[in-house]
Design a protein around this nucleic acid. Sequence first.
DNA 1: CAGTGGTCTAGACCACACA
DNA 2: GTGTGGTCTAGACCACTGC
Lengths: 242, 242
Amino acid sequence: MAKELPGFRPLYAQVAELLTERIGSGRWKPGAPLPSEFRLADELKVSQGTVRKALDEMASKNLLVRRQGRGTFVAQHSAQTAHFRFFPLVDEAGVKEMPTSTVLAQKTGRAERQEAEALGLPPRAPVHRILRLRRLAGRTVVVERITLSAALFDGLALPIGTEMLEELYVVYEQQFGVTVARADEQLRAVPASAEDARHLGLAAGTPLLEVRRIARDLYGAPLELRIDRCDTSRHCYVNSLD
Amino acid sequence: MAKELPGFRPLYAQVAELLTERIGSGRWKPGAPLPSEFRLADELKVSQGTVRKALDEMASKNLLVRRQGRGTFVAQHSAQTAHFRFFPLVDEAGVKEMPTSTVLAQKTGRAERQEAEALGLPPRAPVHRILRLRRLAGRTVVVERITLSAALFDGLALPIGTEMLEELYVVYEQQFGVTVARADEQLRAVPASAEDARHLGLAAGTPLLEVRRIARDLYGAPLELRIDRCDTSRHCYVNSLD
DNA sequence: CAGTGGTCTAGACCACACA
DNA sequence: GTGTGGTCTAGACCACTGC
C-alpha cells in the first residue's frame, strides 16, 4: 500500500491531508462527526492504525476533537474555546476573564499597502475596517483595529455601539464558513496616540502593548489583520515557551 | 501487563515518566544516547511499540532528539537551539539574529519577596543577581535582570564586561547540570526608567516591552527569574497561537 | 553489512457514552 | 448491549547511518 518513492510522504500524512481538505471544502462542517476509524480505514484502503495516527495528528493541531465513546468531531469555535486559545491577556492574579466587546465603527474602504500585504490581497482591494473596544472587569483595556477582505467577508454587518456577546471568530465560522486555525503575532511597546488615550482613559504617550496579529485558516492563508493596543497596567499578555 | 485500576495512567505515560526521571537524575546526561527501543522494551517488560510512544511523546516535548539510523539522544542546549527556542525577538524583516551579551554586574544578596515567590524559595534566601545587556545588529536592544538561587547555582561566576559567547542556558546545563525545559512569560508595556534609558540610549519614559520570564526544569520547578526590558523600535517579539 | 528509528498492519482488550 | 476511541502488543518492511 505504501509507495516508498524518494521524497514521498508517509501514508498517515497523506490521509491527514485528504481529511483536512474535506474539512476545508465544507464536506464536513464544524461540529459534525467524522466516520469511525474503521469506516475511514475501509474507505481509504489503509489500516485503522494509520487512520488513527492521522486523526491524532489533526487533533493535536486542534483541527479535530476526539471523545472516547462518542466519536471524532470537526473542531468548532465557541466563545469559550476562541477565548482560551486566542486571548492571551490575564489579570494580575493570572486569571483569564471573558472580555466584553463593543464595536464603535465598521467601514469599507480600499486596502493600504501594509494591509494588502498582510492579507495577501492585491493593492487597493476592498476591505472592511472595524474599530472595537474590549473591556475586562469593567475597564476598557484594548483598542482593537481589524481589517478583513470585503470579498471574503461579503455582507459583514456588525452591531454598532452595543455589547457583542459572540467572539468574532465564531461569527467568521458560522456566517462565512471560514475557520481561524492559527495566528501569528508581533508584539511591541508603543506610546498611546491621542485616540488610544481617549478610548482607554489614559494620558497620550502612555506605554501600550501593541499586538499585531494575522489570523490564518487551515492552510495558513491570512484571513484577518488585527492590531490591538492594550493597557497593561492591570493586565498582562502571557505566553509559554515549549 | 497493564493495570487498569480507576485513575491509573497509561503504560506509555508511566514509561515516559520513568525515563524522564532517569534524565533528571543525571543517569543519562544531555547529549548521551539512550538504549534502543528494543533494549528498553526488554528491560521494562513492555512492548517496543509502548516504548516508542513514550519516546515520541518525550521528543515532542523537546526532551529527546531522535535520529533515524543513529539513535535517540537526550536533548542538549546549544547556542543555536537555546536561541531559537527561547529568544523570540526578530528584526523588522522577521529574521532571528544571534544576540551578543555583556554582563555588567553579578552580585549576591537576599531574595526580595517577589523573587522568592517566583523562584519558590524561602524569604530572604541567598540569590545571585545579574545585569546584562544584549545587542542585535550592533544596537543595545535589551536590558536584562536575572535572579537565580545561589544555593542551586553555587559558585556561579560570569565574566564581567566582556562579550559572552555562550547562551546562559548552556552554562546552566554544563556547569550546574540543570536543564531549562520550559519558560512562562508575562509581557507588559512600561516606561523606560532612567537606568534603562541610559543603557539603551533612549529618553527616560520611552515605551519598552517588559518580558518577565520564569524558566523551569523538566518537572516545572522554577530555576530562573528574568526580567527583560526591550527596545521594540526596530525589533519585535513574535509568537504563534496554535 | 548490521543496527537504528520510521511506517504500516493486524488483532486484542479496555473505558466510556448512549440508547 | 453496541459502537466509539484509547491502549497494548507483535511482526513486517523500509530508510538512514556508520562500520
